[in-house]
Amino acid sequence: MLFRDAINVTHITNLDDGNIYEGQMDGEWCVGSVPNGGYVLAQIVEACIQQQSSSPHPDPIHVTAYFLNAASLSPFRVVVRLLKRGKNFTNLVADLSQDNITKVTSHLIFGVLEAPSDANKNIINLLPPSPYARKVPLYHHPSKAPRKSLPILLNFHSRFDATQEPEIASQNHLNSPRRTTASTIGGGGLDYGIWCGFKDKEETLSIASLALFADIASNAPMLLPREHRKGLGTSWFPTMTLTIEYKFSIPKSSKTHSKRTVGVFSSTKFLHGAMGRNDMYTELWTAPCDIGEGLEVEGWRDEQVCLAVSTQMSLIVPMAINQAKGKL
């Protein structure tokens, strides 16, 4: 099922302070037996977008979600309630439940992503041509980047084209200059970067779909050299918390922006605790074209914008727990 069809949130009834929506989780968008955390969050984001569609604040600006229980392949309900409506922002709370059990609780801030053209005249921005502006952190243009496949444990891996970034991967090697020593200040960590896009040309990027892309990067244990993850069997990395800050609206498809591909860059600095708690910081960038298509032109990086940044906390647990959750 196409991702756009797998986000099948339908309005059911009005509340005094919000609305109730219902839908059905699709089995293709799972990690093993459990719906992907980003996919689950996308259902909540979509429900809230529907609620805010006719309001002065139609765009999600910030989302924080807490995953209390693993979602299952069954019908779900999203209850969206208004917390506060101000001049510039609207605050919502939204809970996704299945079988009367709350699976995810979230707080969302809505506003306007695309400001009027004259609104930023006196606003400080870290955007090109500022020398402080961050640029897309991937080395290769999507037309030339070497291909790779997403992990097979992502049931939806065949739905995507993806690339690899050998320069970023090499920074994770044991002999990389980035490895820390007794005299190192800061440093360390593991990085990951790919271009990733829907294969089906009927798919398009959406604000809701960015939640999925925010939860698609490989977790830190899988980026470690094999000798540093001895004893780690087939594992599941369930998301416990996921926060997304939306930076820009998705540009219309053009000669400088793809309508179904994004750049994904993530960085992990810490992995510790009895259950292997690990953090992940992720950036989602526009792409100048789809993977294997288009031409690399001078200045293409200056045309790209960061669509969203996310942070999350995940665990390391045996894959058997994932399989058991899928049978509940």
Score class of each variant (00 low, 15 high):
residue 111 G to W: 09
residue 63 V to E: 00
residue 25 M to V: 07
residue 248 F to G: 03
residue 146 P to V: 12
residue 149 S to W: 08
residue 319 M to T: 03
residue 101 I to K: 11
residue 187 G to F: 05
residue 168 I to D: 00
residue 88 N to K: 13
residue 43 Q to L: 10
residue 261 T to E: 08
residue 177 P to T: 04
residue 102 T to S: 06
residue 175 N to S: 14
residue 326 G to Q: 10
residue 95 D to Y: 03
residue 160 F to L: 05
residue 290 D to Y: 02
residue 126 L to M: 14
residue 109 I to D: 03
residue 199 K to C: 14
residue 75 P to G: 11
residue 14 N to R: 14
residue 253 S to P: 04
residue 201 K to W: 00
residue 303 E to L: 02
residue 294 G to A: 10
residue 214 A to N: 14
residue 205 L to Y: 10
residue 188 G to Q: 12
residue 129 P to M: 07
residue 320 A to E: 15
residue 98 Q to S: 11
residue 118 D to M: 02
residue 172 N to G: 11
residue 282 T to A: 07
residue 321 I to Q: 06
residue 179 R to M: 14
residue 29 W to C: 03
residue 9 V to Y: 01
residue 165 E to S: 14
residue 106 S to Q: 00
residue 204 T to I: 03
residue 232 L to C: 04
residue 152 I to Q: 13
residue 151 P to F: 05
residue 254 S to E: 06
residue 304 Q to E: 02
residue 171 Q to W: 12
residue 28 E to A: 15
residue 14 N to L: 10
residue 99 D to R: 11
residue 300 W to I: 03
residue 83 L to A: 15
residue 205 L to R: 04
residue 305 V to I: 14
residue 196 C to F: 09
residue 263 G to D: 02
residue 173 H to T: 08
residue 31 V to A: 05
residue 189 G to Y: 11
residue 179 R to Q: 15
residue 147 R to K: 11
residue 182 A to G: 12
residue 86 G to L: 05
residue 205 L to C: 13
residue 20 I to M: 13
residue 92 L to H: 09
residue 44 I to N: 01
residue 61 I to K: 10
residue 71 A to F: 04
residue 85 R to C: 13
residue 9 V to G: 04
residue 105 T to M: 01
residue 181 T to I: 12
residue 250 I to L: 11
residue 325 K to G: 00
residue 17 D to E: 15
residue 51 Q to T: 05
residue 153 L to N: 09
residue 205 L to A: 13
residue 265 F to S: 09
residue 37 G to K: 08
residue 93 V to P: 02
residue 297 V to D: 03
residue 166 P to M: 07
residue 10 T to M: 15
residue 114 E to H: 02
